[in-house]
Design a protein around this nucleic acid. Structure first.
Length: 153
DNA sequence: GCCAACGTTGGC
DNA sequence: GCCAACGTTGGC
């Protein structure tokens, strides 16, 4: 069992959008090779993930999700009408991968980045590292537990 | 809206 | 396969 953090800009896709979506929902549009490799090689059915709102006021963690099923080719890479269309994507779909997710719950409140920075035990969080831009990244079990604890405060 | 930091692209 | 230029991310 692994833990993850997955970013989305709420103007594009928020946790409320996920709550309204039919499940499982596709986490589509990742166009970064490190994230592709995480999706393909490291994530597993049943892994847990934080939903993080980026480019928000404030930015922070807003809930939890479960990864459902296996990795599969991201269909938006083949859709000329999609923002995520990739004209150079090989037909076998191996270039861009996505995952299905299911909302576990929306937190009662957002956990802002500023609060995570001040929380003992979260000093090494990848999310808080300078220049860190991955939209999907691993979280340790300890970090997972600390943040779930903050949520109830 | 700024801009630092990083990822990607493509010429060579 | 180097690396400069460019594009993007995302906190602030």
């Amino acid at each position: 069992m692994r833990y993850w953090l997955m970013k989305s800009e709420p103007d594009t896709y928020s946790i409320d959008d996920l709550a309204k979506a039919s499940e499982p929902a596709m986490w589509e549009g990742c166009r970064n090779y490190t994230v592709r490799n995480f999706f393909r090689d490291s994530m597993a059915d049943g892994d847990l993930a934080f939903f993080h709102h980026s480019n928000a006021t404030p930015s922070g963690i807003v809930g939890t999700m479960r990864i459902c099923g296996d990795a599969f080719p991201d269909p938006t890479q083949f859709d000329p009408n999609s923002d995520y269309f990739d004209p150079k994507a090989p037909a076998d779909g191996s270039r861009w991968i996505c995952r299905n997710v299911q909302l576990i719950r929306k937190f009662d409140r957002i956990i802002p980045i500023s609060e995570m920075r001040e929380t003992p035990g979260l000093e090494a969080m990848l999310l808080l590292a300078r220049g860190q831009r991955l939209s999907v990244m691993p979280v340790t079990e300890a970090e997972w537990n600390i943040i779930n604890g903050l949520q109830g405060l």
